[in-house]
Design a protein around this nucleic acid. Structure first.
Lengths: 221, 221
DNA sequence: AATATAAAAATTGGATACAAAAATGGGTAA
DNA sequence: TTACCCATTTTTGTATCCAATTTTTATATT
């Protein structure tokens, strides 16, 4: 444990650790309920326990980690009820973002969303998650609401954990793609009400489908 | 700086410090932009800098504190645009909570909300904030969505900071009380659509009124 | 006199050290 | 054999210490 070869230099170790941990949690490399020992993580990321603690606090705020008193952090367990909650909140907040964004949407921004969707339809499941997120955010960003967008991003991250579990959703992507196309069409017409309605159905349908699947797969708590 | 008389004892100092700081920030005792020096706070709360740091991280996640890199924490500045965002999100999330709660609402729960509202109408501005929050949560809680409720609570806390600024809102409380009564009426009829519509207008009206006021009062960023 | 620059002070981010709490395991008694 | 209790070990929470960065202050130069 002697040589801290890499970095004692500047800035924010906590962010770096949090990003790496978040990735490991979302990807499922760290399993739900798995304990996160501070010393172990400190060694793994070549730093001390202090930035690790900060990172854990960050992820706790994001809902990816739980930190019971004096009992050590664990990867937040998966719970179909929580997932239902997440997509309900997503439906509410993402329609809000879209409604606010549509009056500001430029044609070139819509074109960029189309390009992302083209790529998504050609890609495999591995990259689908990221492209899907990029597509949605391309449409939301013009709303210029940083706090709202951050919240949506956090909810998406939590949701992605569940998505990973039920990866055999190939049958769903086709429907998803069609809904994305419909959504773009409504955006081109600047029809906010219609676009929001499509988006709401899009999120809720995906959510319901996944909840069904998860309920079968997961035991209680 | 010698005697740490009070406490080296147990548990989570960070929570205690965070609670105290949050109260000071929301109440306005700590002004927006004011620097939060770690050592100073450590002495004030009779602890070391470490729990203070944890507390600041917590409050940063809640949006009440900003922590620029290596530059020390400050009380998050107030920005009318942020407030607009907060009440837009509140409108979206609280109508969701209410819609989900209404089918579960019992008569006794409604009665309890009425009792809270009675008290609110009789109280002074000092307690209005807390009672107002209690009223809303009495109606939302039956939705049984912990994450959603936590998010709403956080948004309310942020919003309360702005409310404090424009306290001369006596003229608004009368309208607010009437809207609360209308809302209760719709809940009694279990008319979810109507109740949500009233709630949406209630939050948006209060928000718009306050944004106007704040825009006059506050300079740009 | 104003501005740029460099030294000094203050303050944060990170590492190590220490104490309290929880988990573990072994032994003993029923 | 099983249940319970106490000692040991692990792990967290808190305090102190050190290095690096930012801010302030003083000085010199134009």
């Amino acid at each position: 444990m002697a040589e801290r070869t890499a970095a004692k230099r500047t800035g924010d170790q906590a962010i770096r650790v949090a990003d790496a941990l978040r990735e490991k949690i979302i990807s499922g490399e760290l399993k739900p309920g798995e304990p996160l020992r501070q010393e172990r993580l400190a060694v793994l990321f070549e730093t001390s326990r202090m930035p690790v603690r900060d990172a854990l606090r960050l992820l706790e705020a994001e809902g990816l980690v739980q930190m019971p008193q004096n009992r050590g952090a664990i990867v937040a367990p998966l719970d179909p009820e929580e997932f239902r909650e997440v997509y309900e909140m997503r439906a509410a907040l993402e329609t809000l973002a879209l409604r606010l964004a549509i009056p500001e949407l430029t044609n070139s921004q819509i074109d960029r969303a189309v390009a992302i969707q083209d790529k998504a339809e050609a890609s495999d499941l591995e990259h689908f998650g990221a492209l899907n997120k990029a597509f949605h955010f391309a449409l939301y960003e013009p709303c210029a609401r940083p706090r709202l967008l951050a919240q949506i991003a956090a909810l998406n991250e939590t949701g992605d954990r569940y998505l990973r579990l039920a990866a055999a959703q190939l049958d769903y992507t086709r429907r998803s793609h069609q809904e994305h196309r419909d959504l773009l069409e409504a955006c081109r017409r600047r029809d906010g009400a219609e676009a929001c309605e499509i988006l709401r159905c899009h999120i809720e349908a995906a959510g319901e489908a996944l909840v069904d699947r998860l309920t079968v797969r997961l035991p209680g708590s």
